[in-house]
């Protein structure tokens, strides 16, 4: 589904990522771990096309997309849920969700593009809030909206940047359940950036750990215990 080949990225002259190679298979849930500032968000942004790759190649669904602009990647099936959620504050929940259809209009679905039922099925709270402005939602509601909006694009791959950041435990559980269902029922592949090891291990098939911009280790969450990478994440 997604393959990164020796991808590098920089902000101006300061190198943030080097020689990152990873892959996410069809319908697979892979987690990306690392300390604050390790470069996780930068990597997701590079995959989404929001940050240029200074080196290497990004291959998605068999095609080299390294040179594509973000909206073209979205139209090919990459859904993005940014750190901080990226909700349009002055658009209603319904309008935020309708923007998720933009990618599908671009795919030629035209007027037939509709919000899939499973969006409200997964996040029932959104149906109740549909006329509320995005900026007025709670953090948990915003996070659910951000995931729902990305799902509205009918992605084949979902990039999730710290979806549990700053949320109370019960909402974290809701999101955990939602991710499991998205994977099982919709067969969407996911690349999940996480701070919390337990959460990551509970949903992911495989993991990668980056350390100061380089790949430190990788493995299978069923074969290796979470403790074995903990030292790479603690400060």
């Amino acid at each position: 589904m997604l393959t990164l080949e020796r991808v590098g990225a920089a902000y101006g002259l300061s190198r943030v990522l080097s020689e990152i190679s990873l892959s996410v298979g069809r319908g697979e849930l892979v987690t990306l771990l690392g300390r604050n500032g390790a470069g996780k968000s930068t990597l997701l942004r590079t995959i989404a096309g929001l940050h240029p790759a200074a080196a290497g190649r990004v291959i998605f669904a068999g095609a080299d997309i390294t040179g594509l602009v973000p909206y073209e990647r979205a139209r090919r099936g990459i859904g993005y849920v940014p750190q901080g959620r990226g909700i349009f504050p002055h658009l209603t929940v319904r309008e935020n969700l309708r923007l998720g259809l933009a990618a599908r209009f671009g795919r030629g679905e035209g007027r037939n593009a509709r919000l899939p039922d499973h969006v409200f099925d997964l996040f029932p709270v959104l149906a109740r809030l549909s006329e509320r402005k995005g900026g007025l939602l709670s953090g948990g509601e915003q996070q659910q909206l951000a995931i729902a909006r990305a799902l509205a694009t009918k992605p084949a791959l979902l990039l999730l940047d710290e979806p549990t950041e700053g949320l109370q435990p019960s909402i974290v559980q809701d999101i955990q359940a939602a991710l499991k269902r998205i994977r099982r029922e919709l067969n969407v592949a996911m690349l999940l950036v996480e701070q919390y090891l337990d959460f990551a291990w509970s949903v992911a098939d495989r993991f990668y750990v980056i350390q100061r911009g380089s790949m430190a280790t990788e493995g299978n969450t069923r074969e290796r215990a979470a403790d074995t990478v903990a030292h790479l994440l603690s400060v």
């Binding site: 989404a48 929001l50 973000p70 909206y71 979205a74 139209r75 940014p82 923007l99 998720g100 990305a150």
Partner: peptide, 9 residues
């Protein structure tokens, strides 16, 4: 940025 990431040209 977010608009573009959702597929808006």
């Amino acid at each position: 940025e977010m608009a573009e990431a959702l597929g808006v040209n």
